[in-house]
Amino acid sequence: MEEHLALTIRLLDYGAVFVFAVSGGVAAARKGFDPVGFLVLSAVAAVGGGSLRDMLLGRTPVFWLTDPFVAGVIAAAAVLMFLLGDRIAARAGALRWADALGLATAAAVGTHVGATAGLPFVSVVALGVMTGSFGGLIRDVLCQETPFIFRGEIYATAAAAGSAVQAGLWATGAPVWLAAPLGAAITFLLRGVAIRRNLALPAYQRREGPPG
């Protein structure tokens, strides 16, 4: 059982790293960056959320410093996108869909880590959302783009819903191999529906005050 648990979380973690690294490559292709730019954007998108998670929990060194396979995954994604980025970046919604998959898988890993650390339910969900969204936030800031999480889109809300279901299942004794993939699937489904239907949270509307 422990082997199945470790394998489930590891696959989700590597999947999140790869997909977010691809999203960084898509963003770099759109900006016309050089190979170093591709590698940097892929790296920050891939490990930004997990690094924040580990630092908040006092887990040092952070996960990617002790797992050389992570660097290989990031480098492979960056090279792949440098070679094929123009074809992928040209597809409508490529960055959003890659980011959505990264959000779902990374949030599931963050939720699991928070749950196993014995955090309260709300903190577990918050950690899942941060793990899923922080890498993409850094990527977008470096590209001088408004991060998805700030655009009013169904983004953090989707991650919170998936994390809440996963944390709830964990609390009731559901196995990790069921709870984590289901949480990731819910996040991805909600985010996917929002992308397809262009759903968003209401944005603040500034009101002009009376002339002074």
Results as ranks from 00 to 15, higher is better:
Ile88Phe: 12
Ala21Phe: 06
Val73Trp: 08
Gly102Asn: 03
His112Thr: 14
Asp67Cys: 05
Trp170Gln: 01
Gly49Glu: 00
Cys143Tyr: 04
Arg196Ala: 12
Ala174Lys: 08
Ala126Ser: 04
Tyr204Trp: 11
Leu190Asp: 02
Val26Gly: 07
Phe33Arg: 15
Ala98Trp: 01
Thr116Asn: 10
Gly114Ser: 05
Phe150Pro: 00
Val141Trp: 02
Pro120His: 09
Glu208His: 09
Arg207His: 10
Leu52Pro: 00
Ala194Trp: 06
Ala164Gln: 07
Leu189Phe: 11
Trp64Arg: 14
Gly72Tyr: 05
Arg10Cys: 10
Leu5Asp: 15
Val141Asp: 01
Trp64Lys: 12
Phe38Ala: 07
Thr111Ala: 07
Gly118Gln: 11
Val176Pro: 03
Ala45Pro: 00
Gly85Thr: 05
Ala171Trp: 02
Pro175Trp: 01
Pro175Phe: 08
Met81Asn: 03
Val73Pro: 02
Asp67Ile: 02
Ala75Tyr: 06
Thr157Leu: 14
Gly135Glu: 13
Glu145Asn: 12
Ala90Met: 02
Ala164Asn: 12
Leu83Phe: 00
Leu182Cys: 01
Tyr14Val: 15
Ala21His: 04
Tyr14Ser: 10
Leu11Tyr: 10
Ala75Asp: 07
Glu208Met: 11
Gly93Val: 09
Ala94Thr: 11
Gly15Ala: 05
Pro61Gly: 02
Gly25Phe: 06
Ala90Leu: 00
Leu56Trp: 00
Thr111Val: 10
Gly15Ile: 12
Asp54Trp: 07
Ala90His: 08
Thr60Trp: 01
Leu80Gln: 05
Thr146Met: 11
Ser51Asn: 04
Leu103Thr: 08
Leu178Ala: 15
Leu39Pro: 04
Leu11Gln: 11
Val165His: 07
Leu41Pro: 04
Leu52Lys: 09
Val26Cys: 06
Phe33Cys: 14
Gly209Leu: 13
Pro120Lys: 08
Leu7Asp: 07
Gly25Gln: 11
Asp86Pro: 00
Ala161Asn: 05
Val122Ala: 14
Phe82Asp: 04
Arg59Pro: 05
Trp64Gln: 12
Val79Leu: 15
Tyr204Ala: 13
Ile195Glu: 07
Ala185Asp: 10
Met55Pro: 02
Ala46Phe: 07
Thr146Asp: 04
Ala89Val: 13
Pro68Asp: 09
Gly50Thr: 12
Arg96Trp: 05
Val44Gln: 08
Leu7Thr: 14
Ala107Asp: 03
Arg139Pro: 03
Gly85Tyr: 02
Gly72Arg: 14
